[in-house]
Amino acid sequence: MRSFTYEKAHSPAAAASAAVRTSNAKFIAGGTNLLDLMKLEIETPSHLIDVNGLGFDKIEPTPEGGLRIGALVRNTALAADERVRRDYGLLSRALLAGASGQLRNKATTAGNLLQRTRCPYFYDTNQPCNKRSPGSGCAAIGGITRQHAVIGASDACIATHPSDMAIAMRALDATVQTARPDGTTRNIPIADLHRLPGNTPHLETTLGAGELITSVTLPKPLGGTHVYRKVRDRASYAFALVSVGAIVQRDGTGRVAVGGIAHKPWRVEAAEAEMPRGAKAVAARLLDGAKPTRDNSFKLALVERTLAAVLTEAKG
């Protein structure tokens, strides 16, 4: 770990401008991802801006009938919130499927969205990795890729985004509110927050330099049955091989987002039109253009089968 300087931010604007004032600065929230990466010198910020004191720890109703979730609301608090459990069960379930109790107590809403990949080569600084060190190559391609992406990947990177929470956020069409160093704020639809790797896998989101997430807003409840199914090798405390988040209405229409298969939460709105026709039809559209590796081609069948189970469960 490199030595770094530290400050506690007192307002969102001050945090955002501090982040561009010092070169190579980073925000720190729960620190459950960032600190691990700093110890391995995968992240090497020279300055940390602690955003924990900014008061973004509330969950409030919006005039539109939705919920505004402060960027620093802990995963545990969010999953346990009565309104979330009642109206956005998918989110609560996805959160509880992630990490462990201890980690969720620390992990924040914004930090969770911005957590980095679990590609094992990304974690080993001896190995080439375009995401960690742009232009160095990708050690995963041709290597051990059971966990990796099957769709939307590139010749530069085949990593996945590991968040469970983000799958629910994507299915719920959340929006992300930010504060920028120039004092302006903006709304980013969750679909636009994460990028596909392309030739620049080190650029994972569309946030600008120093742009701070202040909250995440859920639109008004959609009703329907909410199911989150995470498939993994052990019963708990493992990242998803594949996860399926679905909201299914009584008439069989609904929404589906899939985790564990791409560089971002994977949702194809056109595929949802197939929902009344069943999992096979949805999966075919959802995975159109998939390019799995030999190690992870099982994920295609797994998505379809899991989705089928989810739809059956939703029917009750």
Binding site: P120, Y123, D233, R234
Partner: peptide
């Protein structure tokens, strides 16, 4: 059900060299 050091046969090392990558049973198992 889960334990396996995954060998990268090109460069010769166990790729999953931490306790997140090398899974052992947890209580729920």
């Amino acid at each position: 059900l889960m334990e396996e050091l995954a060998v990268d046969k090109r460069t010769g090392f166990f790729v999953n060299h931490d306790l997140a990558g090398y899974e052992v049973p947890v209580h729920a198992d």
